[in-house]
Design a protein around this nucleic acid. Structure first.
Lengths: 338, 338
DNA sequence: ATGAAAGCGCTAACAG
DNA sequence: CTGTTAGCGCTTTCAT
């Protein structure tokens, strides 16, 4: 079916070696040959076979990326950022979703490795169950973890500084007058879930406010709605609820208001991520913005370093987030934005 | 770096052919050899090189998919559906986003083709500008268009029956008492944009209601908000607005209510797609549900047929959508659902 | 500057 | 049933 470089060479009346050299331009050929080869290639509609090139070169020009799910806007945002980052490096992205299952995650890694990707960017779905597959992959190929990471180190990581982010959120609601606070997050199955809870607890303890027992479910709108209902049913509302992501926060605001509570007058709500949902929410959500572009850039940079062979201990890079005050929390003087 | 089948063969004390046969299990070998090979492979951590296999077999076991953008929940939903559909066929998906640009779309197709995908599923971003690249790709490899399609035919397509969907929406609001209607959609740069507008116009004309000039922008929340403002500023509200997708509808509802109009009492709003956003909306959005699973299944089936070589004229498969009545339109007796 | 040939890892003919 | 070998398409020595 395909037209090969042999066909081009024959049509141009030169050897395949010359054709190869002319096409790649990486080596000198007479202008005349270059011309003839170029014409032949164009006429035949020659298209280089990347598979053969990959086998020969032992490098595919692709990097694999696996995230828990592309239904979550945070992950699609970060995927887009990585794609943009890779844009001009001639590297293609092979994107996979693990669907929040360590089994399919392991399978995905396996096929990515079999396809000989030059590197891997992964947000492991489970802090424990993902360990073997991720470590194994890291042994075979440059790998950096983005956002979520696995226990025990051994592989590079770049993500947001959750601790700092939660401190930002907690201090903000307290500055707005909150005396009792609660955390609405996810069960502690990922690093993000754990770090955000502990960051919240630390900040709240430091401030000396009352802390209600955390509400732990999923990183979803549905769970946010449920958590809001739970709060209403409990009879007494906290002054503020800090959420582990925006989807939870949006759901929470919805059910709180549906139940008659005013946001932010009766209870302040702050989210985390600031991708998409936050501005869509009514009223617009105060949240902690993850520095997605920087995270993606850093991950790609790290991957490049690893590829270069540069041996060094595993790195962890935590990038500082930023508070974005909108309308679900009481403003404190300056800093309000749309 | 990698351990090859030669290493395995040597370690097992057999020829590469036997090793290959034992590993693939596609041909008889003595149990003893099978055993020895299996052990050697396990001990060495052998992992087959898919690149070499692809070159040898002239088939990669991958299909490429290109959609305008993964930021749009409709496309992520359909990508997930296609992934699920492919799950058990041993075929991997190479996902690309064209970012709504015919240029990057063409480039993406080019590299997918260079990587020798076995087939292509594409939602062309532009009904006109996407034509050459898509047609060229279709000439080289089995290709089916999903959702959007290009002008002029020549390639298979599966999508929703837009005409029927818009008729459903229009008839519904009219049954609810609407006497004047308007369409809020996208500029006519894609097949979906065009078909939905014409479907709306036809259904409205058939019903004999008053039709205001259509509002055409983007398939985004922002445009929905703007369109809603425009409607308010115009002084007189229509009884119903039918939207080309849910994001527009959500934005529209938001700005209409913000401007003091009651939904659905003053104006009914109906969306299109029913993925994610619709239930998140407050109040929950009445909409036309795209049969995403069926569309994905059909696309994969068609692709399989094409691969089988089965020559036949290009097919267009339009699947009937379903109306989902929630709370942004007045119900008509039965059929309300969550 | 150009051409002949080796070889990337794999599988399927083809012999034995 | 097993082993030897050719060849998928490409790039790069190695000679010329």
């Amino acid at each position: 079916m395909g037209v090969t470089i042999h066909d081009v060479a024959r049509a141009a009346g030169v050897s395949v070696a010359s054709a190869s050299r002319a096409l790649s331009g990486r080596r000198k050929v007479t202008p005349e040959i270059a011309e003839r080869v170029a014409r032949a290639a164009a006429e035949l509609g020659y298209q280089p076979n990347a598979v053969a090139k990959a086998l020969r070169d032992q490098t595919t020009g692709t990097i694999g990326m696996v995230v828990p799910g592309i239904g979550n806007p945070f992950f699609t945002t970060i995927v887009e950022a990585v794609e943009r980052e890779l844009q001009n490096s001639g590297t293609d992205l092979l994107l996979c979703a693990s669907q929040y299952s360590p089994q399919v995650e392991a399978r995905r890694l396996e096929t990515l490795l079999a396809r000989r990707v030059d590197g891997l960017i992964i947000s492991p779905c489970d802090i424990e169950a993902s360990v073997p597959a991720v470590l194994d992959a890291a042994r075979r190929v440059p790998l950096v973890q983005l956002d979520r990471y696995i226990e025990g180190g051994g592989a590079d990581w770049v993500g947001v500084d959750d601790e700092a982010g939660l401190a930002l959120a907690v201090d903000h609601v307290i500055a707005g007058g909150a005396r009792s606070v609660v955390f609405a997050g996810s069960r502690l199955v990922s690093s993000s879930a754990r770090l955000r809870l502990s960051g919240f607890e630390r900040a709240a303890a430091r401030a000396g406010v009352e802390v209600l027992p955390p509400l732990l479910g999923e990183f979803t709108l549905e769970w946010g709605i449920e958590a809001g209902r739970g709060l209403l049913d409990a009879g007494r509302l906290p002054d503020a609820v800090v959420c582990a992501n925006d989807e939870i926060a949006v759901g929470l605001v919805r059910s709180l208001r549906f139940g008659g509570a005013r946001v932010p007058e009766d209870v302040a709500v702050v989210g985390f991520d600031d991708v998409g949902h936050a501005t869509m929410c009514d009223p617009p959500l105060s949240t902690v913005r993850q520095p997605v572009e920087e995270m993606a850039a850093e991950a790609v940079r790290l991957l490049g370093q690893l590829k270069a062979g540069d041996p060094r201990p595993a790195q962890r890079i935590a990038i500082a987030p930023r508070l974005v005050v909108r309308q679900t929390s009481r403003p404190v003087a300056a800093g309000v934005e749309g």
